[in-house]
Design a protein around this nucleic acid. Structure first.
Lengths: 205, 205
DNA sequence: CCTTTCATGGTACAGCCGTATCAACATCGT
DNA sequence: ACGATGTTGATACGGCTGTACCATGAAAGG
């Protein structure tokens, strides 16, 4: 057998080039040639590893969500040391906000993909439903635990609240993305909302 | 002077053709020829009324937001007869959800434009900031009035709550758009949230 | 060594895009 | 009626797109 190359890594490199150039010029403006140039390879090579553009875009989305999932998990793990569940919820929601550049690119491209998924059934089959549902389940669990520890205000529905928090976080993220609001103000909005979900600190226990 | 035609109306007709075809195939897939065919006119005519595609897209966005604003105002006016401010808030937020086809198209295209605005500075100067800010102001006013009438729970910050509600509504709208959740579940989430903003009905007054 | 197979590069091709050009038609002031 | 002018139509052009084709280099097995 001839020169063996790690296909998975090559594909990852190309996918990251796609994410980079798409983050700068927008997903709609990205062509195969742009990706090849950004990755420092020939157009033919991009075709070799991803036979078609559609497959490249699909893999790019997987790569994007994968990296975001890792990032999220790391943040939650880091917040696991913190005392209360509120810190964990805050860590989860803040990570979802496009505060730094990497997160901005994620939001930008994920929204781009979501828009395409409205009219493209191949994309519609992608994790636009599964991943958020998983996040909602996880957040619901955290809230239920907090509820069991009597940390929440009375009458709070864990699942509805989880869904609302994630939706709010997504909406705030879009607001940040288009320059409507700052990450700080988005954080303030989320915190204010959490104040009405969690009991006041001095009234806990 | 020759055959007099209402330019504004012609432009509106063409813009509606744009919205129609973009709603079906996605904004990225819309070309001048598609718009012309959908409007039942020649390509040259589209060029005549909108010299360039960029201007057509810009006018299409204005038309879209304009019609949505009218729709929103009509709903609020209709809810003005209802007793409390909560009904008004609900009407406002429910209208913002993509429940029917027209609203779905609005959300789909507005999000498409927002994504483009991230990388296009001409679009970035469009009402992606002004209109939502106006909505936030209006909702803040309503909440303040409700607060003055002692209809809200204690400790509610009107502005932060308004921003949160709009962000949540936007996020839920995206969820509906991509098929993640139904309009009914989105309504349930919003209602649950409003339950924690407004006082319980039997405790009011 | 030499062949087979993987890996890479250069280039050509059809198709679509937005835009520009050229031509015809209809209408209103004179 | 006539010509100026607003309005419409058909077509051509350059550029870019994704994809396909052909050729070459490089490494492992016989």
């Amino acid at each position: 057998m001839p020169k063996r190359v790690d296909h998975a890594q090559r594909r990852t490199e190309i996918a990251e080039a796609l994410v980079r150039v798409a983050g700068q010029r927008g997903l709609h403006a990205v062509g195969m040639r742009d990706v090849a140039a950004e990755a420092g390879v020939s157009l033919r090579l991009v075709q070799y590893y991803f036979e078609t553009k559609e497959k490249l875009l699909l893999f790019g989305l997987e790569h994007l969500t994968g990296k975001f999932g890792e990032r999220l998990a790391a943040r939650i793990r880091a917040a696991g040391d913190a005392p209360g569940p509120r810190a964990m919820v805050e860590a989860l929601l803040m990570t979802a906000l496009p505060a730094d550049e990497e997160s901005r690119v994620f939001h930008h491209l994920y929204t781009s993909y979501a828009v395409l998924a409205v009219t493209d059934r191949t994309l519609a089959a992608q994790p636009f439903v599964k991943d958020p549902d998983a996040a909602e389940d996880a957040l619901t669990d955290i809230l239920r635990q907090a509820q069991a520890a009597n940390l929440l205000r009375p009458g709070v529905d864990a699942r509805l609240t989880a869904a609302g928090l994630l939706a709010m976080s997504a909406g705030l993220g879009t607001g940040i993305l288009v320059g409507q609001r700052s990450p700080e103000s988005a954080t303030a909005v989320l915190d204010d909302h959490l104040d009405r979900v969690f009991r006041p600190a001095d009234a806990a226990g």
